[in-house]
Structure formats: structure tokens, C-alpha cells
Simulated scan of single mutants.
Amino acid sequence: MAKFTPAAHLICPLDQQPLALDGGSLKCLGGHSFDIAKQGYVNLLPVQKKKSKDPGDSKEMIQARQRFLQAGLYQPISDQLNQLVSQQLDASGNKSVTILDAGCGEGYYLSRLATENKLIEKTQVDQKKVELLGVDISKWGVQAATKYQLPITWIVGTNAQLPVEPGSVDLIICMFGFWQPEWFARVLKPGGKVILAESGVDHLVELREIIYKEVHRKNIPELKGIAEEGFKLIDQQQLEFRPATLNKEQVQDLLVMTPHLYRASYEGKQSAQQLEKLDLTAQVVFRVLEFNPQPDNV
């Protein structure tokens, strides 16, 4: 059985009481118990929060994304995230920091953040106590994330009800994930930050031109309702780069790992499947939000 890394502020998804490690389970005082999986993660997604029998990304999507990301094709995105996180941690000066990846998928971005920014080493030499949590609604994603074998708390859960105590998180990263301001406001400390990564208008435009009859260049989503929840946009940066030329297998993995496979026409899919290689534009917008709730929101 793989080792499970317990986090300090986990709560029961059923009654919101603190969870404590008891043998091979997490238990709350209300009598609810959640077994640690043999791979080293815990499932804190209540059945009533599932919108399907197997929510989130499928096993096939996760495997495709693993292959694509491990090939380093999106490493510049990871590098930019790591730089932004480093800036926020340096600015905070806190000795104890909790970072939560909301929608961690197969764990690529959080694991690379931990190793490249030497967050694990910092904890080991007691310079800065860093607690890392990855949450995703897909059990296949979380199972894949445990294979990095890092001291990260991996959790099957939902961003709509993150299973951590209110006011316990310093920084949330959300890489192309689904979120609402009120979800993150519940768990962030005052002064906490959110780093969002979202597709730019020209992201993967070459692929989109092949699989769609008409390409709609949509702007990144507006940050609706953030002020009411105590958030302020403090930074926005755009990253654009051209990954190495994709081979046939990588083109197929890219299709499978994104929603484009399910939105494309039959003709578009056929055209993509015939590609032997593809040069792409990757364009990602990073936005950093700061959380400072008004007194009546606390």
C-alpha cells in the first residue's frame, strides 16, 4: 500500500467536522470514515455530489494527458505557473503555507511545482512548512497523480465543496479548471491568492481550424462576481509559445485529452486522425486574484 500524506485541515464532506487519520482511514467525530486507497489517496466525494457514476475525466482522457504532458509539450505553462507561485510565496513571507490545486487532474502541474520550486526540500530543512493538496473529481486522475510518489495529499473531491477547513488555504491554483468565486472564498485565508490558467483566444487554433467548420475565437471568461466575494484581480499575463511538432500519436492524445474530441464534427475528427504531424500555437492567460473579504463576508 502506497503511503498517504495527511493534511492538517481536512474536513468531512458530510458534516464538515475535522478529519483525523486513524489506521488506514480518515475519521470524523460524527462517525464517518473514509478509507485510504491502496494507491495512497482518499475519496472525499459524497455520492450525492456525483452527477454521474464516474464523474470527471475518463481513464482514457487521463492516460492521453499523461503521455502528452510527460513529453514536455506544455512545460512552458508549468514553468510560468512555478514562477508565479514563487513570486506569491516570496511576497507572503509566511513560514507555513498551504497550496491547493483545484482540479489537479493527473498531478503534472502540482508535482512539477513541488519538485522544480523545491517546496518539498524547503519543508524537509524546515525553512518553510509547505503543505500541498491536489483535488480532482476524477478518480482516474487522482490515481494517476499518486504515481509521482511525492508527499502531496491527493483527494478525490469537488471544487464546489473543497474538503478543507474554512480559512485554511494560502494559495489555490486552478489550471483550466471549473470554479466559482464563492467556492474558493470559503477556504482561503484573508490575503490568500488564486492563480487561474485559461486558454487564450488562439490556443490550439491550428487544430481547431482542422476539426471545426468555423472557428469561434472566444475571449477568456469574465471574472463575474469576484468583487462581491472579496476578490480583486492583481495580475494578468499571457503566455504564447509553439510546442515541438506533434507526431501522429501526440495529435490523437491532444484530441482525446481535451473537450474538442466531443465537440468536433465527424468530418473534423476524420481529418485530424489522418494527420501525421502538426505545428501548434499554445496561448494561455494567467490571472492572479487576491482575497480580502469585507467584514460581513468573513
Rank of each mutant, 00 (worst) to 15 (best):
A7L: 07
A8T: 09
H9I: 11
P13Y: 04
Q17H: 10
L44T: 10
L45T: 08
K51W: 05
S52C: 06
S52L: 01
E60C: 02
M61P: 03
R65D: 00
L73A: 00
P76Y: 09
D79Y: 00
S86E: 13
Q88I: 11
D90V: 09
A91Y: 02
S96I: 06
S96P: 05
I99A: 01
L100C: 08
Y108M: 06
S111C: 14
T115Y: 02
E116P: 07
N117W: 10
L119P: 05
V130N: 04
G134H: 02
V135I: 14
A145R: 09
T146M: 04
Q149A: 10
L150T: 10
P151N: 06
I152N: 03
T153P: 05
W154S: 03
I155T: 10
V156H: 07
A160T: 15
V164C: 10
P166M: 12
L171M: 09
I172K: 09
I172P: 07
R186Q: 06
K189W: 08
I210A: 00
R217Q: 07
I220D: 00
D235C: 04
Q236A: 13
Q238D: 08
A244Y: 11
L246D: 10
D253H: 07
D253Q: 05
L254C: 07
T258A: 03
A264E: 06
S265E: 11
E267S: 15
G268I: 10
Q270T: 15
S271E: 14
A272D: 01
V284Q: 04
F286D: 03
R287C: 11
V288H: 05
N292M: 10
N292I: 15
Q294I: 02
D296Y: 13
N297F: 14
N297C: 06
